[in-house]
Design a protein around this nucleic acid. Structure first.
Lengths: 396, 396
DNA sequence: GTTCTTTGTCCACTCAGAGGAGAAAGTTCG
DNA sequence: CGAACTTTCTCCTCTGAGTGGACAAAGAAC
């Protein structure tokens, strides 16, 4: 199939595409209710979109008490690729233009192997999805990387946990390989984008998404737009001091949040506790698996292990301490907790909530929900697809 | 004089008014260079503005190698009132439409006396400026208050340091008294607005302004727009924890930044030090003035007093600690330090810089200037005038 | 079948804005 | 001083986006 080359010619067309993406098939009349255009003008723009092939006719809708309407919808053959590169695994998904996930693969990987190796893996995963008949090609791709990105160019900058990626032209390279437009962003920003449009933050304009995975980061949405900062490093909260004179961090300072709580820190602390005989439960799991992960701690806590529970509570306290500061500063309408450690669930959330509600002023916390993300491991790839679709569904 | 009632009828007119405000008198040709309109359309809009009286002819400009141009400018009789209510004093200023300060009064006051008393004082100060011939009336007024504001309504909400103001309809009351449109905002936001357009932040889109006065607060500018948060309390950083298990704060928690450093905290600490005989210099000043202020500490430090210097350094360290966290999170392009304690000058700035550059990651601090505000005590009133002018110079 | 409702198309009209011609008012240079 | 060039500003025509109403098509309600 020939891939999509057309782009909306004006703001009206862009808006119509977005309505069809977010609202599914629609009649001209329904579109008219949402778009503040005369019916005549609307019909013209819809006809032009039909000509481009971005939009296709979709039969007759049921009557609403009068003549039945002719529905239109986004071309069901459009395909977007969403890629979410984490520190230790990659997610790749195919969506249609309405951003429904048609196929999704996750594979372990080490981002430190560098861009060339990782790219090879991503491309083979994309090829696998294509081979399974889900897509003949891609009309656009979004990709998230676990570090700061110079957004306009789509290039990672000075990423601490992914040496070798600094300055690697991710956007251009992937665009070349896939033959379609590509947008690159930080993984946490994509998670925020996902939760904003398909998840728990659907009604919010100003909110934070704290992703606790191998590391820890924060997505910031201001006025409905992802905020990336002056150099693309906004939301880099892993190295805010959570514990004065605390643990030594890889960044050179002491007491960084990430050194005290993250997937990696939790696994480390649990292993220490097991080795020191503080918890039989954890020691058993260490024995059995040859190592401990955040999931082990979650399981131990669920089984009633006090040490595991303490670790989670203490981590939640540190995290809550930092989030409390951000809440005072930013006054968000919602805080979403996501990432790999959401398996820790309610225990973690309770510890964070307690700390935030205690430390921030009532005006900021009065009506502030702190909740878990709704999309789990798909948040990143959905956000990635959203990113490229926002780009393509805006005036050229 | 009849006060201005007209408003720009469309976005073009609004843009033209803003250009004339920020660039002074201009010819049609010069305006055309900045506004991306055909000369014919531009002429039409300028003529309409002339009809409204917002803009007046301003004679012939010097030739630039051809026919001399007819300049136009904002009506020089337009007057804005800028009011900056602090915790312990009020500033009131009159500006013309180009936001040049024509007159400025500062008077001591205690905001805790409540809105009625303070209003009376503000109105009498405004009357004094009017009586001195600077204005026959006001075309708009901006007012800043030292606490959170529900911005659309212009009403303070739950202000901790100004009991009695909660819910007081500042905007409506002042508008009634002055007979002109009024906008209300937090004092720190106005300071940010002032520094953004007339001060040190002129080229920045994303920056922070930390105001250290009686209390401590932060103005946040995102994409050139002041960010106020979901409930109007964004930037309320005085109660972020700077010292774990630190001093008891009035808010009920321990170790809040404001409890460790602010004009009030500094005066308190200096008095304690003087009473405990730690500094003869400070003790002398305490004796002489019957009390100590931040200015006394500044003077003592300038005279070489080690205790005063230590207090400043320690305060700068606490402040820097908090700012470091904000810098990691927000990744601003500039941090401006302002407010009453800027008299502490270089010593304070150095302590803050040291702490921030040490604690935040290089990508965020790499090219991050941390500077003192440029406008000093006029930042607030200039920002206030700017606020109302932005409102009036936008499409009705 | 008649009447009412909803949907979609067609067409005439309005209006913002572009762009060119040309007049007005200067400067520069031989 | 006069001719040629420049800049500014006005006027007039033309275009194209968009509106709104008339009308046809298609179905529901009675």
């Amino acid at each position: 199939m020939r891939r999509m080359t057309a782009r909306p010619a004006n703001a009206h067309q862009a808006r119509l595409l977005q309505l069809l993406r977010d609202g599914g098939p629609n009649s001209r009349a329904q579109l008219g209710d949402q778009v503040d255009l005369s019916r005549s003008k609307l019909a013209v723009e819809v006809d032009r979109l039909l000509e481009t092939g971005l939009v296709v006719a979709d039969g007759l809708a049921a009557s609403r008490g009068g003549r039945r309407s002719h529905n239109v919808r986004l071309n069901p053959e459009l395909r977007f690729l969403g890629v979410d590169i984490g520190a230790t695994s990659v997610d790749v998904a195919v969506t249609n233009a309405e951003l429904e996930i048609l196929g999704h693969i996750n594979q372990p990987m080490d981002v430190r192997e560098g861009p060339v190796a990782v790219f090879e893996q991503v491309l083979s995963m994309a090829a696998k999805l294509r081979a399974s008949g889900l897509a003949e090609g891609f009309d656009g791709a979004g990709i998230g990387v676990p570090g700061p990105v110079r957004f306009p160019e789509g290039v990672p900058v000075a990423p601490p946990i992914m040496p070798g990626w600094d300055g690697f032209p991710v956007r251009e390279a992937l665009s070349q390989e896939l033959g379609c437009p590509v947008m690159v962003d930080n993984d946490v920003n994509l998670m925020a984008l996902g939760e904003q449009h398909a998840g728990v933050a659907r009604t919010q304009h100003d909110f934070l998404v704290v992703k606790i995975g191998t590391g820890i980061g924060c997505g910031i949405v201001v006025g409905g737009e992802v905020y990336r900062g002056t150099t693309g490093s906004a939301g880099d909260i892993g190295h805010i001091q959570a514990v004065p004179e605390g643990r030594q961090c890889a960044c050179g300072n002491r007491g960084c949040l990430e050194a005290h709580f993250s997937g990696a820190a939790l696994a480390r602390d649990a292993t220490e506790a097991a080795q020191q005989g503080q918890s039989a439960e954890l020691a058993n799991r260490l024995e059995a698996n040859g190592g401990l992960s955040a999931a082990d701690v979650a399981a131990a806590a669920a089984a009633g292990d006090a040490t595991a529970l303490d670790l989670i509570r203490e981590g939640g306290r540190s995290t809550g301490q930092v989030i409390a500061g951000l809440v005072s500063f930013f006054n968000p309408g919602l805080v979403v907790i996501g990432g790999g450690v959401t398996g820790l669930g309610h225990n973690l959330l309770a510890a964070i909530r307690t700390q935030v509600y205690r430390q921030s002023l009532p005006l900021a916390t009065g009506n502030l929900p702190i909740v878990l993300g709704e999309l789990g491991p798909t948040a990143g790839v959905i956000g990635a697809a959203r990113l490229i679709s926002d780009h393509l569904f805006s005036p050229a």
